[in-house]
Design a protein around this nucleic acid. Structure first.
Lengths: 348, 348
DNA sequence: GCAGGCGGAGCAAGCGCTTTCAGGGCTGCG
DNA sequence: CGCAGCCCTGAAAGCGCTTGCTCCGCCTGC
């Protein structure tokens, strides 16, 4: 039903080849001819069929982004960053969620993507070594975000540093018992970020001569309720922490909620530091380690476009800076006093 | 470079037609032949080129979603809802941002989408009457979310009711001066939601016999900082409101932040109600009017798929329910006392 | 005045699939 | 035993573009 290039050619009295060239602004088309073609195309409301154009040209003018989930703040911000660059270049954005191993395998093998995208950005998609190799060996340009891949370009945050920075901040305030709320330890493959941040936490503790206490390290599921539960468990310990490092702002929000419910003053009774600099972190006055999430999406997109345009270059590993943002949820540890709830416990 | 259907045919010793049928599970293929084809395809790592398949079949197996922005909570949730349905049907998701009139025009005319998607969902894209007609006349199946369109199926919230419900809640608590924080009045076309919510607010006030005060209605830009600014301006009024209805939770967060900075007790000195039931609203104990955002995305996707599968049916108009969620940021108005800051002002 | 060059346009060969139509071997029934 | 009919398979015609190659004038440069 829609007008095809042949219709335009007919109306303009030229060949389809000329229509194609005229419409795409290629040289070797006389101005008067081009004008006639443009006029005819406009009159017919003609738009080139993307499939046909792609088939013939070998390109799709689309780039794909694989994320585990779309809804969470982090991923939507990365998507927004990618989108900005992609739209700027007049390309389209295909979003696919990859949250299980079948999906990772499909992504790595290029299935489901062939003829769909010119390149793909995988955000926090925990590919196995083998899958990464498959992806790299594939002809499909790919960029990783959040996770390392030797043979692929990637955009990373130094998560060890993130963990260390946050921990050092709390140590510098005099805290010695610092809770860590993050992801479950038994899942290193799916998502290596928590493990790295935990390492930074341990390094900082070690540098301060503090023995890590495994009971202070809990899973928070990277969600608000998860953070609240973890905080609850931490505060129920015989010797509860005076500060909590949550590996994401969302978990930190959960901790803050629980603290409020318990009637604990923040940072008076409990200090909390998060990671991300979530949109609402500032509104909550949350001390956090910020990372340029949207910027990571942009960088990844730029990297990918460079690979697509320039062909296979040496895989660049980009490390973006993180930065401690001290706000109101962290303060000096009270030397003489553990949080009120445990004080009660101690009295009884 | 990737294997083509011809390679598979050759390896399996059959024709391309048979490969195509075998791989897509069509009938009239002998089991033994199918097995041979599958084996060959697996060995070669063959995947059909989406463009070629689409060109030949006329379908793209992709559906498009147009949003003004990707990053904000609301849109990312709608996207997630659409994604769930789309992935479930083994389709792909193309995301495009439409934030200016050129973009709206392109969307309506189907440019940039031809040969890319089988249908499109437009979320809060404020098309003109003419653009909506163009879109409807187009052969491209489309569903609207958030904004009404007579000749197109759409998924809506009764925003008048949202405004009324929230306002009635505050009225029932004894508030009579209620600030309204939303979008600028002079932009009715781009985004009709604020206008509708404002109408509900006015209706509730009228029912309570209260004369609306234009000075109480301010723009909040649907952002946290915008909400904070609006709250600041409201509290600086000679007769400041004792409650604020923010048209989004994000703006409500801004109000809460400002209240805390000003040392105002919530809800003691100031009640705040939002709209959305944002992920962190519960953590903040924010009273709000919830709407099933993700569900709206799902519904829209289902509606679109129905249109695509069944052809043009009568455009369905789906209204999803909103619901007041009373939490801790709203409380009784103090009859004898305006918020502390204005009390100071009154004293001087 | 003529050859070489160049800008402008068309022809036609794909791009890699899907799908219609035709055909060949069998089975089953008369 | 013969023919209708059914299964399975292949040949080939597109789908709607892009692009390499060819061709045709006309303008330079010597």
């Amino acid at each position: 039903m829609p007008a095809s290039i042949g219709d335009v050619a007919e109306h303009a009295g030229v060949s389809v080849a000329t229509v194609s060239r005229a419409l795409r602004g290629l040289p070797n088309v006389a101005p008067s001819t081009r004008a006639r073609v443009l006029e005819a195309a406009a009159r017919l409301g003609y738009v080139a069929d993307a499939r046909a154009a792609g088939l013939a040209s070998g390109r799709t003018r689309t780039i794909g982004v694989a994320v585990p989930l779309i809804g969470p703040w982090f991923f939507s911000q990365v998507l927004a960053g990618v989108e900005a660059v992609v739209t700027d270049r007049d390309l389209d954005l295909l979003v696919l969620t990859v949250d299980d191993d079948a999906g990772r395998q499909r992504l790595a093998s290029g299935a489901r993507l062939r003829g769909r995208v010119d390149g793909v950005i995988a955000v926090d998609v925990a590919l196995t070594e083998e899958q990464r190799a498959t992806l790299a060996a594939n002809d499909l340009p790919a960029v990783l975000v959040g996770l390392r891949g030797e043979d692929l370009p990637c955009v990373l945050v130094d998560n060890v540093e993130v963990g260390r920075t946050a921990t050092e901040h709390l140590l510098s305030l005099g805290h010695t018992r610092i809770g860590l709320v993050g992801h479950a330890r038994d899942d290193p493959l799916r998502f290596s970020v928590p493990e790295e941040r935990r390492r930074g936490y341990h390094e900082a503790l070690a540098a301060a001569g503090i023995e890590p206490d495994p009971r202070l390290e809990l899973d928070g599921n990277f969600s608000i309720p998860g953070g609240a539960e973890a905080a609850e468990a931490l505060l129920a310990l015989p010797e509860p922490p005076t500060a909590i490092l949550a590996m994401s702002d969302e978990m930190a929000f959960g901790c803050l909620r629980l603290a409020r419910q318990r009637g604990l003053a923040v940072p008076g009774d409990l200090s909390v530091v998060g990671v991300d600099d979530h949109d609402v972190a500032a509104a909550w006055d949350l001390t956090t380690v910020s990372q340029p999430v949207q910027g990571m999406g942009e960088q990844a997109a730029e990297l990918l476009l460079a690979v697509i345009d320039a062909g296979a270059t040496a895989p660049a590993h980009l490390t973006v800076p993180s930065r401690l943002r001290v706000r109101g949820t962290t303060g000096p540890a009270k030397a003489d006093r553990t949080p009120s709830r445990s004080t009660q416990d101690a009295i009884t």
